Simulated scan of single mutants.
Amino acid sequence: MSAVTRTSTPYSYSSAVAAGGLVFLGLHRGFGDDFATQLAGALDGIGDTLEPYGLHLHDLVKVHVWLRDIADLPAMEQGFVGRFPPDGYPARMTATTQFIDDDCRVMIEGTAYRGG
Results as ranks from 00 to 15, higher is better:
residue 68 R to G: 01
residue 82 G to T: 02
residue 48 D to K: 14
residue 72 D to K: 06
residue 90 P to L: 08
residue 56 H to Q: 15
residue 58 H to R: 14
residue 74 P to Y: 07
residue 64 H to C: 09
residue 85 P to G: 12
residue 98 Q to E: 15
residue 56 H to G: 14
residue 68 R to P: 07
residue 50 L to M: 05
residue 81 V to F: 01
residue 82 G to A: 14
residue 86 P to T: 12
residue 96 T to H: 03
residue 72 D to M: 02
residue 90 P to W: 05
residue 60 L to T: 08
residue 98 Q to R: 15
residue 52 P to D: 10
residue 96 T to A: 02
residue 82 G to D: 14
residue 53 Y to L: 03
residue 68 R to I: 07
residue 87 D to M: 10
residue 91 A to G: 13
residue 47 G to T: 11
residue 73 L to A: 09
residue 90 P to F: 06
residue 54 G to D: 06
residue 87 D to E: 09
residue 61 V to I: 13
residue 88 G to Q: 11
residue 68 R to W: 04
residue 75 A to M: 09
residue 54 G to Q: 08
residue 52 P to Y: 10
residue 60 L to W: 06
residue 50 L to E: 04
residue 77 E to V: 00
residue 79 G to E: 02
residue 100 I to N: 05
residue 87 D to G: 04
residue 55 L to F: 11
residue 68 R to H: 03
residue 56 H to P: 00
residue 51 E to S: 08
residue 69 D to L: 01
residue 92 R to V: 13
residue 93 M to C: 09
residue 60 L to S: 03
residue 102 D to R: 13
residue 50 L to V: 02
residue 94 T to P: 05
residue 103 D to V: 06
residue 100 I to T: 08
residue 65 V to I: 06
residue 88 G to S: 11
residue 54 G to W: 00
residue 95 A to C: 13
residue 101 D to Y: 04
residue 57 L to S: 12
residue 86 P to H: 11
residue 85 P to C: 00
residue 58 H to M: 11
residue 82 G to L: 10
residue 74 P to Q: 05
residue 47 G to M: 06
residue 66 W to C: 08
residue 81 V to R: 10
residue 71 A to K: 13
residue 52 P to I: 10
residue 64 H to N: 09
residue 62 K to G: 09
residue 70 I to N: 08
residue 55 L to H: 04
residue 97 T to G: 01
residue 54 G to M: 08
residue 71 A to G: 15
residue 73 L to V: 03
residue 99 F to Q: 10
residue 97 T to L: 01
residue 50 L to P: 07
residue 91 A to S: 14
residue 93 M to S: 13
residue 61 V to R: 10
residue 86 P to L: 12
residue 75 A to S: 12
residue 67 L to R: 00
residue 57 L to V: 10
residue 59 D to K: 11
residue 83 R to P: 03
residue 92 R to I: 11
residue 96 T to M: 02
residue 53 Y to I: 06
residue 65 V to F: 00
residue 71 A to V: 14
residue 51 E to Y: 00
residue 62 K to R: 15
residue 57 L to A: 11
residue 102 D to N: 14
residue 48 D to F: 08
residue 53 Y to D: 09
residue 71 A to F: 05
residue 103 D to W: 04
residue 99 F to H: 04
residue 50 L to C: 00
residue 51 E to N: 06
residue 94 T to C: 02
residue 51 E to H: 08
residue 81 V to H: 00
residue 62 K to C: 12
residue 83 R to S: 05
residue 91 A to Q: 14
residue 49 T to I: 12
residue 89 Y to W: 14
residue 49 T to C: 13
residue 83 R to M: 05
residue 47 G to L: 01
residue 93 M to E: 12
residue 77 E to F: 03
residue 92 R to A: 14
residue 72 D to A: 13
residue 49 T to Y: 09
residue 60 L to Y: 04
residue 79 G to Y: 08
residue 51 E to G: 05
residue 56 H to N: 13
